[in-house]
């Protein structure tokens, strides 16, 4: 049995303007210690899928198990990184990380909690910015604090929703390298599910890439294996034959789904027919 198993997952939202089927019959498996990326266009239902798997929101149908246990809410051994940093502005970098450490390890002494948080920030190169508040930090540094907060609790599962989406290209690249290092650094492997709209980012970081095919309702394409040696660099990926093949395969799957007429997504006999409300409310 895989570490994360998702079978037959469906989710729809009902608003005054009708019911919108965001996901239908989605299945996904992630092996222990694997890094998978779910790649797709904006508004394709990626974030909803991640929220369901992470236990942030309940599914309408289907089952999710992590480590053999069904998901019923947020797991204590999981961590989440959001696109918009989600740091608390009234706390310093250290206090932000400490909040997570205190919640995860209430039994530790205050001193140990503080040390754990400090070490987490040092690991992302922010040892000298411990007492700065988020507004005094650049976007890249803020997301480093968010990464430190996520890794400080030594999670077994990490969920990331477009973690570098708000950053400029150069900052993005250094943070991707930091993330790759953090994932391979720990004493226990972190199983990671990341959502991104960047194919390059997915190739750089993942073991498997799962294309999400725009709906509504969205479905998942077959996983594409990224069998490239680590550490990987963007420069190397630009030339490597296999990276080119993966890139072509992901892009062709995604564009093929986009070219498909919307109506075919709601094939008859599989639950209620989707109303074509395209905009995803976030």
């Amino acid at each position: 049995m895989a570490f994360i198993e998702v079978t037959g997952l469906s989710k729809s939202f009902t608003t005054s303007s009708g019911t919108r089927h965001v996901l239908r019959d989605v299945s996904l498996t992630v092996e222990h210690g694997q890094f998978i990326s779910i790649v797709g266009a904006m508004g394709s239902g990626k974030s909803t899928l991640l929220a369901l798997v992470a236990g942030l929101a309940p599914a309408d149908a289907g089952t999710i198990t992590i480590g053999g246990e069904p998901v019923r809410g947020i797991r204590p051994d999981s961590a989440f990184v959001f696109q918009n940093y989600s740091l608390l502005p009234w706390f310093t970098a250290l206090e932000n990380v400490r909040l997570a450490v205190e919640a995860a390890f209430p039994a530790l002494s205050r001193q140990d909690q503080r040390r754990t948080a400090t070490e987490a920030l040092e690991r992302v190169g922010l040892g000298t910015a411990l007492n700065r508040r988020p507004r005094q930090l650049s976007g890249g540094m803020r997301q480093r604090v968010a990464l430190a907060r996520a890794f400080a609790t030594r999670p077994r599962v990490l969920f990331m929703d477009e973690p570098f989406g708000a950053l400029d290209a150069l900052t993005r690249e250094t943070l991707q390298q930091d993330l790759a290092r953090l994932c391979s650094d720990g004493d226990q492997p972190v199983t990671t599910v990341m959502i991104t709209n960047s194919v390059e980012e997915a190739i750089l970081l993942s073991d498997h890439i799962v294309p999400i095919l725009a709906g509504p309702p969205a479905t998942l394409g077959a996983p594409i294996v990224v069998d490239l040696a680590r550490p990987r660099s963007a420069a190397q990926l630009a030339h490597e034959e296999q990276a080119t093949q993966v890139r072509a395969s992901v892009i062709s799957t995604l564009t093929a789904a986009l070219a498909r007429p919307k109506a075919s997504a709601g094939s008859p006999g599989r639950g209620p027919v989707a109303l074509a409300v395209v905009e995803e409310t976030r």
């Binding site: 992470a54 942030l56 204590p76 999981s78 959001f82 918009n84 989600s86 608390l88 919640a103």
Partner: peptide
Amino acid sequence: QDYWNVAKVLRLS
């Protein structure tokens, strides 16, 4: 919503 999400994912009391 970001702040509520923090409370949620950190499982704050």
